[in-house]
Design a protein around this nucleic acid. Structure first.
Lengths: 207, 207
DNA sequence: GTCTATACTGTGATAGAC
DNA sequence: GTCTATCACAGTATAGAC
């Protein structure tokens, strides 16, 4: 691994190059998936030569793993913030808003994740069956408690969460299709989506 | 192209081999995307040698194009059936049901489409901006007329359609994740989804 | 019509000069 | 630490025997 001989850790140049490689790799992996991506593409996009990339990372697999690890750190955060502090309907709608904002601000991360899951999640299946399932079960229990208290309508909590993931990530993963269909009105797609989703989930949840 | 010298069209063997190739290719392309797939994988899965595959198809690109063409034929059918014959809410919920059934019965086709759009739809962008946009606009107008007549609640028709695509295709495209999260209850996922989606869209649409 | 053998290109990775 | 040159292999595709 790249590491200065001193005890001071990576130099500024090292950090910058590592960042440039990961930035370019995110773009490429998000577009072509793991197998469809090449080091040549990452080299071209980052402006760093192929051998130099392999000086900073052990190989293609390592770069991809690093990106996935980073992604998973932040991916579950919006759901973790779902709490019983405020009004249940508002809480869930706020979660929808946070998730939609992530699709708007981090579309490449969303597509990287989509590619991975679409291909059978070979590298993150443990994360899905472990941490993701645990968190989802916990939040489903919270939603169920709201149902039992009569604060929201009776729906299946797990499938409610699936539908939120699906509708919000759709605007990142299928962006090309959304823009093709909306054409001249495409610029306002996230504002329109925010309003539509808020309406739909309020109608679905308000008792 | 493979074609018998006679005027009788493809022989039985030719049809069978062509079908076997397309069947295997669908599996492979749906899993790895276009660039991530190889003729070796298709050859291994179909039991037909690589040169023999290239006797029946001009190349990798041609096989993929054939699969996409087939897909697009049937993909829009459920939406085309949306008509103003019955009760608007029932009509839309029936459409949701048809779309969910397609995710259950043709998950590979759904993933093939998802891979293509995720990668920027380089080979079907014209289809999206043309026929798909035309159909979507037409059905959005129908939905808008229901809104104007006070038969359903006022929501954005285009984004309603997006949400239906997202929620239903999610059960094909993110199947691994859905099963990982539901674990022991995963077998009933489509029945649960059908009920949840019916509840959600009735709540969203019923005035 | 189908197979074996092979040409040619792209890809991940390494060696060694600087 | 970074580059040029290059390797070994896998990928698509073709030629030609049968």
């Amino acid at each position: 691994m790249a590491r200065a001989a001193s005890t001071k850790g990576p130099t500024r140049i090292q950090r910058e190059k590592t960042e440039a490689i990961l930035e370019a790799a995110l773009e490429v992996f998000a577009t072509y998936g793991y197998r469809g991506s090449t080091l040549d593409q990452i080299a071209a996009k980052s402006g760093i030569s192929k051998p130099n990339i392999l000086y900073y990372f052990d190989g293609k697999e390592t770069i991809h793993a690093k990106l996935l690890a980073r992604l998973l750190e932040t991916w579950l955060e919006p759901l973790e913030h779902l709490s019983d502090a405020g009004d249940p309907v508002d809480e869930i709608c706020a979660y929808v808003g946070r998730k939609l904002a992530m699709s708007r601000d981090y579309p490449r991360e969303s597509r990287l994740f989509a590619n991975e899951v679409l291909q059978g999640a070979p590298r993150i299946l443990d994360e899905l069956a472990g941490p993701l399932k645990t968190l989802t079960d916990k939040k489903s229990a919270l939603i169920q408690s709201w149902i039992n208290a009569g604060k929201i309508k009776a729906i299946d909590p797990h499938h409610l969460i699936f539908s939120i993931w699906a509708t919000t990530q759709h605007y990142a993963d299928f962006d090309v299709q959304v823009r093709a269909v909306l054409s001249d009105k495409a610029d306002a797609r996230f504002e329109q989506a925010a309003e539509f989703l808020d309406t739909m989930y309020r109608a679905t949840l308000t008792p």
